[in-house]
């Protein structure tokens, strides 16, 4: 009975895996000029479509092979990670701040505030997100900041909806009234009592949103609407890889795997963080 019941303490393995991958990818992106084996932009037609290291004909300097212009795939992925992470952090944080604040207000105050905010969210959600993003970037112009802005503008509603519902549930608990009895004002109660109880959800959503931002950025790059085509981005590499899928499958597969791993890691990491943040589940 003993070992069957004894619960594993400490960090769960999925947090290790997800966190490990994210840390690795993040460090590689930050120190890209130091760790990338080649210049990601250097073209060499002599080296075009080199296969990855374990296949016949591979070149030791080009671990994951090269694309149709002879550029090193690994280096391009590492440099592409920079943009992916910048977009992920900036867009997710912006969406989180706006969405959570509005969600908290709608959920806690209810009434008119809630009706107005909820109506805006409904209208927002009526647009298909990817089309909305493409439209926004088309209007805002391409470039890093407009991509970030577009993602934040689209996805704040995700935070708003979830945090509103959660805040509403929390506000119905007696401890909120108990704080009124103690003499706290409405805003004080919202920030002091309710907010800490929705933080775990905010953190989990934030992490999930980072993954989503990575995908959206990749999609925008894929349709050539992200930043300048010179800088390597994961979506851009996937778009190029698609064209040479029959000659060089690796140019498509490696960026796809990188993208999927990163997105999954973000969502797993968020869930794990949520449990660790929660004194009840801990």
């Amino acid at each position: 009975m003993d070992e069957g019941r004894a619960r594993r303490r400490g960090v769960p393995p999925r947090l290790w895996l997800a966190g490990g991958w994210l840390l690795l990818a993040l460090l590689a992106a930050i120190f890209a000029p130091l760790v990338a084996p080649q210049d990601p932009l250097a073209q060499d037609l002599m080296l075009e479509r080199l296969p990855p290291f374990w296949m016949a004909g591979a070149d030791p300097g080009y671990w994951l092979g090269t694309d149709s212009l002879g550029r090193d795939l690994l280096s391009r992925l590492i440099f592409g990670g920079r943009i992916a992470f910048i977009v992920a952090f900036a867009a997710a944080i912006a969406a989180c701040l706006v969405g959570s604040a509005l969600g908290l207000i709608a959920g806690y105050f209810g009434g008119w505030a809630d009706r107005i905010i909820s109506r805006i969210v409904d209208v927002w959600m009526a647009f298909p997100p990817v089309l909305f993003a493409i439209l926004l970037v088309a209007v805002l112009g391409t470039g890093l900041s407009s991509v970030i802005l577009a993602i934040a503008i689209i996805d704040w509603t995700r935070f708003c909806r979830v945090i509103r519902a959660e805040t509403m549930g929390q506000s119905r608990m007696d401890y909120v009234e108990n704080a009124r009895i103690a003499g706290y004002g409405r805003i004080g109660i919202m920030l002091r009592e309710v907010l800490p109880n929705v933080v775990p959800s905010i953190v989990a959503l934030l992490s999930l949103e980072m993954g989503i931002a990575v995908i959206v950025e990749a999609i925008l790059s894929f349709v050539n609407l992200s930043i300048s085509t010179d800088d390597p981005t994961w979506g851009g590499i996937i778009a190029e890889g698609r064209l040479s899928i029959h000659q060089a499958w690796w140019v498509l597969v490696f960026p796809l795997v990188t993208l999927i791993l990163t997105v999954l890691s973000f969502s797993q990491f968020g869930e794990a963080l949520k449990t660790r943040f929660d004194p009840v589940l801990r």
Binding site: M173, D174, Y175, N178, I181, A182, R186, V280
Partner: peptide
């Protein structure tokens, strides 16, 4: 109104029926 009640709150206490939910979990 709430603002004028606040100075009186100290003298108007209530102990709630549901002890669990009347305490902030965090």
């Amino acid at each position: 109104p709430e603002a004028e009640l606040r100075p009186l709150r100290r003298n108007l206490q209530m102990i709630f029926q549901d002890p669990m939910s009347s305490l902030n979990p965090r």
